[in-house]
Design a protein around this nucleic acid. Structure first.
Lengths: 331, 331
DNA sequence: TATATTTGCACAATCGATTGTGCAAATTTT
DNA sequence: AAAATTTGCACAATCGATTGTGCAAATATA
């Protein structure tokens, strides 16, 4: 049923119906009696206004595009959940795009979402090339997790540098020197900052000669394969720093398959925290990101942007959780 | 830029521009020369047609609503990913709703999505009351995972009955009798069928006196609390059958905290498989659902529905993965 | 009673696309 | 050369809402 049909049914103009249903009765002096008739009629016929038509007319869709690299990665799944909750509270919906960490898909997603006239965009970008971001679309964008150093697009992320620094420092203080990092996607700010933190900690403790960075990709498989290679080396590291939860998982699997043990043969720290980490054997020492906060702050920032307020970038503090996956080495 | 502006720029009618850009030049006899001019102009001005306007006019949105109970549950996150991939291949996008397993939110989501005129709906329903599904909306719906026995809405799910039966049978054959089920949401088809399978296996082996069903909710917390209670009982079960991955996680946590061991003190089987299950201590014996297939088949089914084809319900076979969390009991 | 003001609602344009139909101009057929 | 076809494109309606403005009728004021 359309507003026109409803109006005919009630024997009045669409104007009046529309004004009542959008709560503008006072503003346009619709009499209480008429307003009541409209409401009753709408209820009776279960009239639901066509949002597409509203969107076209009002030039807003109440829809936010959410672009993330991998919804099956629990980090992003949790993020998506928080974002969903926050957006629903504000009467917005999510158009979801998963880029599989491929720039081409990200580009495509961006186009599709802009074509659909989303009111705002929340993006955890792949990060490689971002020409497609600069576009002249005036749609507000907030970057999540990953950002671009040389762009002014506002972002919300964890302080990855500090998280990585403290994790590395922790390893060093436990007596480790031969510490290898298994990285995610090399060109992402997240990865760069974690590497930077790792590097700085190594340098600060005069063991920069041990700096080694391995792998590529935020996947279980990368963690697995990189670790396999590492374990075969003559100069096998005494500790591995996995730059996200999936890599850590792959690393554990490889160690287990090699018949070795954590932390006996090799220590492990993971960036990211997951509920099952405490149940692994050994329980995984990890750097926890404030996922809820990231989602919440990102949505808040986006809304500020949409209402024209000025916003500032946010770097939220991570939390170090010590468990059992790091061995203390006597020197 | 709108099609009108582009048409003015090119000094021709919007009709012509539209027809060229939608590839109908031959059908409407637009001369090649004109077509070329249109394409060049569109490219030059980076014209992107307003999808909202198209949607209104064409009465289709190329958008599918995806309603799931919990995107942070890896089962649904994986499902979402498969669905995303399959839909993108077909040039559709996802409007995502997370119901938190609350009927009220499900109802709201349904309304919102119908108001936005989605072309189809993929729903893993909460399951409690489904009046809101029967509505006269002619939008094609396919149920995923959970379905309604007394409704004709097509569904795609795992054969939960069989999965639960074989898991229970496995426990029994390992010598267990005192087997307790920790369930999810009691009113969901998924839960009912798993319970049914469990029950039947117990009955078939003449130990229906041991049938016990505990808990409520597909959450880590439910698994945790239910298990804590179970462990304190005098007649503590020798085996626990956790009806999803989150419950299993909570159960493991409770067992660990109680200072007990799996499978030494109590055996555990989980419905659902997760990548980290093999890395837990002990590695978790589990029933694996064909998640990829579920998503794929669900999308296929929805598209058949949308094109008016007849569809049939699908029950996909689960896969039993034996690991180390079940102890063999000598009798 | 005549005029001014307020009340209550409807007309018609608009958002940006798509499309049935009509009508000249160009071309072909007789 | 006249008639019939074909070619190439534009007019205007349409999708379903929202909204600036206008205009009677009702009421208040002079």
């Amino acid at each position: 049923m359309t507003i026109k049909e409803l109006a005919q049914e009630l024997n009045m103009s669409t104007t009046t119906v529309s004004r009542v249903l959008t709560g503008q009765e006072k503003k346009y002096r619709i009499s209480p009696k008429t307003a009541l008739r409209v409401r009753d009629g709408a209820r009776k016929h279960k009239f639901e206004p066509n949002q597409i038509a509203r969107n076209l007319r009002l030039q807003e869709t109440n829809t936010i595009g959410l672009i993330i690299p991998d919804i099956s990665n629990p980090f992003f799944a949790n993020l998506a959940r928080t974002v969903e909750i926050e957006l629903r509270r504000r009467d917005k919906m999510i158009l979801l795009c998963d880029t599989k960490d491929e720039t081409s898909l990200e580009k495509e997603s961006l186009h599709l979402l802009l074509g659909r006239k989303v009111d705002g965009l929340l993006v955890a970008p792949v990060g490689k090339k971002y020409d497609h971001f600069i576009k002249d679309s005036k749609v507000p964008v907030v970057l999540i997790d990953r950002y671009f150093k040389d762009q002014t697009i506002p972002f919300v992320t964890t302080d990855n540098y500090q998280g990585a620094y403290s994790a590395t420092k922790f390893l060093i203080q436990k007596g480790h020197q031969n510490i290898t990092c298994i990285q995610g996607l090399g060109h992402t700010s997240v990865n760069e900052n974690r590497i930077l933190g790792y590097r700085k900690a190594m340098e600060d403790h005069k063991i920069s000669n041990f700096i080694r960075i391995s792998g590529a990709g935020y996947s279980i498989q990368n963690g697995y394969e990189s670790t396999r290679e590492l374990l075969q080396k003559r100069n096998r590291p005494t500790a591995i720093f996995a730059l996200n939860n999936q890599i850590a998982l792959g690393a554990m699997k490889a160690v287990k398959e090699a018949g070795l043990h954590i932390p006996g043969d090799v220590s492990l720290i993971a960036f990211d925290e997951q509920p099952y980490f405490e149940l692994l054997s050994p329980a995984l020492t990890a750097i926890q990101q404030p996922m809820q906060d990231i989602g919440k702050v990102a949505v808040e920032t986006l809304f500020k942007l949409m209402t024209g307020e000025t916003v500032k970038n946010q770097m939220l503090k991570p939390n170090f959780i010590e468990r059992e996956s790091v061995k203390s080495i006597e020197s």
